[in-house]
Amino acid sequence: MSGIRPPLRIVALAVCSLFVLSGCASGSTEGTHSGYADREGPTVIGTDGSAESRVVAALYGELLTAAGEEVKTAGAPYASAIDTAQAVVDGKISIAPAYESTLLRAMPGAQTMPGNMEATLSMALPPGIVALPAAAAQRGIVLAVTGATAERHKLHSLADLAKAGSHLTLGGSASGDPDAPSASALKKAYGVTLTTAGTSKTADVLVLRGTDPAIARDGLVVLTDPKAAIPPEHVFPLISAPAVDLPGRNALARVNTLLTTAQLAALTSSVNAGEAPGKAARTWLRSKGLLR
């Protein structure tokens, strides 16, 4: 946001903080991401073991290949999105799917600029590592209710929960996630009183990942979050800047406005069901006119 300038000390701390991987620890960023940044070779895409990461990486790979870049996939998946991000910073791979809040949690002292996540990431990442613009899709935490519950209590947003009284329960498969809001946090933000029900699948208000197939399968109503009480988790390409040229970046940008959370959930479900990530990615890209 214009007019917001965090103290220089905080900025310096944020820049030094990504997994203690930036070169500030040794007084220089040289060598921090010297792998693919400093040598010729294919653009190497890394993933974690999840179906979601693998299909997003396949989307990136197809787009980069169509843009004329030589692309290969890292030999083995990484353990988590944090590990793939670290591999980009270390120069072991050129690009990986990353997620906003997950990445920022790994940067102690990083300062969030309200309403400007792109600037927040840019400020916190080490030199030479770039967070390209995020897609519309996110795997972040959402709160959802059944259609019947939404109709009965006239629920559209989290703010509406206060009208339903204090008898609703809060639970679900993602209730233990680091980004999941607690009942007390929701009370502070929206003045609603909910009873915690842990991981119960029958809670009135379900805490889920935005790409959970249950949302579409069960016709759940996702409640909007007008006060941004739940941090965003949009997917974006994290790159080693010299490893992805301008045509490649422009190709990746084409997916941003078209890949929605619902479509990412459908792609993930297809891969979980056994479809090859590359095939799922090509089919979707062709359906959107992004690939011949």
Rank of each mutant, 00 (worst) to 15 (best):
Q111P: 00
K154L: 02
R152E: 08
A124R: 07
H153I: 05
M123E: 06
I129G: 00
M117I: 15
R152A: 06
S157F: 05
L132K: 01
L143R: 13
L132A: 03
G140L: 05
L158G: 06
Q138L: 00
A137G: 01
L132W: 02
A106S: 15
E118Y: 03
I129F: 03
E151N: 07
A119N: 08
L121I: 10
M113F: 10
A110N: 08
A148W: 07
M117P: 02
Q138C: 00
A106P: 11
V130A: 07
V130E: 12
N116K: 13
M113A: 11
P127F: 09
A134C: 01
A110M: 10
A144T: 06
M123A: 14
A150D: 08
M107W: 06
A106M: 13
A110F: 03
T149K: 14
T149H: 04
V142N: 11
G128F: 11
M117R: 14
E151I: 00
A134P: 06
A148Y: 05
L121C: 05
T149A: 15
N116Q: 14
R152T: 10
G115L: 05
A110T: 02
A159T: 14
R139V: 12
T112F: 04
T149F: 00
T112H: 12
L125E: 14
A136R: 15
P126D: 10
A136Y: 00
I141P: 01
S157V: 11
M123T: 15
P127V: 07
V142K: 13
T112L: 12
G115T: 13
A124Q: 04
M113R: 14
P108Y: 09
T120E: 02
G109T: 01
A124N: 07
M107Q: 12
L125K: 11
P108E: 10
T149R: 12
A134T: 14
A124D: 01
A150Y: 11
A124H: 07
G109A: 07
H153A: 04
H153P: 01
A135Y: 00
P114S: 06
G109L: 04
M107V: 15
G109P: 04
A137W: 01
E151K: 15
P133D: 08
T120L: 01
K154I: 01
P108V: 04
T120V: 12
E118L: 07
E118N: 09
G147S: 14
A148I: 09
A136M: 01
A135R: 04
M107K: 08
M117E: 12
P126C: 15
S157T: 15
P126W: 13
A134K: 14
A135P: 00
V130L: 06
L158I: 08
T146F: 09
Q138R: 02
T120D: 01
M113T: 12
A137P: 04
M123W: 10
M123P: 00
H156I: 03
T146R: 15
A159S: 15
Q111D: 09
L155C: 08
A150R: 08
S122G: 09
G115C: 08
T146E: 09
S122C: 02
I141D: 03
K154E: 06
A136Q: 09
L155Y: 06
P133V: 13
G109H: 06
H153V: 02
T146K: 13
P114A: 09
Q138E: 15
L121A: 04
S122P: 00
E151G: 11
L132E: 10
I129L: 05
H156L: 05
G140F: 04
P108G: 08
M107T: 13
N116Y: 11
